[in-house]
């Protein structure tokens, strides 16, 4: 089976000469389908950069990166958009819903960019909202929802795309403990249905949910531990 994420000797360098910063320094990482991986690290460890590269939001300075076996190293801006649209479901720390658009419209948006018909995407959006327990909030705008609810809408948006990879960047960073539990339970449920999940976090209790924990330090992989071994 093709690995969902296949990074080989990835580096990311910012600046030049004296000011050169190696945010990521030779990371190789493979995530197989159905895995639930947490990437941990203190701030400055390079985990945000890794997240941007995994999410195809940014391209590496050197090394190869394949999503579902597709090398994205030399894709242009529009092709990267397409890869993100087809293969990656993002869940951001700041929710990143579009203001003044209903929850259902927000969930529909990636499907619209994919060219799915209106009636079809409305149906899929409502299904996804029902799955995260917000069927009755489909007409609410983000500012009418609590933080936990907004993050669940974001999860629904990622789910509706049926992506190869759910990529969550500190998804509970802005949430209280109850909402945190809700969202993490939701991710557990999604994982149990066979989805591949990569979660970036600095909190141990969040990482505990994952089957595998990758710890970064100074742009390198410090440890890569399976839960069974813990």
């Amino acid at each position: 089976m093709t690995a969902v994420v296949e990074m080989h000797d990835i580096t990311k360098v910012y600046g030049q000469g004296e000011a050169e910063v190696r945010a990521v320094d030779g990371i190789s990482l493979t995530v197989e389908p159905g895995e639930y991986v947490a990437i941990m690290g203190a701030s400055g460890s390079g985990k945000s950069t890794v997240m941007n590269i995994i999410g195809a939001l940014d391209v590496a300075t050197s090394g190869t990166y394949k999503i579902d076996g597709v090398d994205i190293g030399d894709l242009d801006d529009d092709a990267l958009s397409l890869v993100r649209n087809r293969r990656i479901g993002f869940i951001f720390q700041a929710f990143n819903l579009i203001p003044r658009m209903s929850a259902a419209s927000n969930v529909e948006l990636p499907l619209m960019y994919r060219g799915v018909r209106r009636s079809e995407r409305r149906r899929r959006a409502l299904d996804a909202l029902a799955k995260v327990g917000l069927a009755d909030r489909s007409h609410h705008q983000p500012n009418e929802l609590s933080g936990g609810q907004q993050q669940r809408v974001a999860v629904a948006r990622a789910l509706a795309m049926d992506p190869s990879l759910m990529l969550a960047d500190e998804p509970t960073g802005n949430l209280d403990s109850r909402s945190t539990a809700d969202v993490l339970d939701l991710l557990d449920e999604i994982h149990s249905e066979g989805k591949t999940i990569v979660i970036i976090t600095h909190e141990d209790d969040v990482a505990e949910r994952a089957g595998r924990v990758v710890t970064l330090r100074d742009g390198k992989v410090e440890s890569d531990v399976l839960a069974a071994a813990r």
Binding site: G55, L57, D77, D78, S81, L82, R84, N85, R86, F90, N96, L97, I98, P99, L109, P110, Y113, R114, R157, M161
Partner: peptide, 16 residues
């Protein structure tokens, strides 16, 4: 700007 970033992150093309 942020909204445009979100749209691009979830797959909007330049053209769109």
């Amino acid at each position: 700007t942020r909204e445009i970033g979100i749209r691009k992150a979830i797959g909007a093309s330049r053209r769109f």
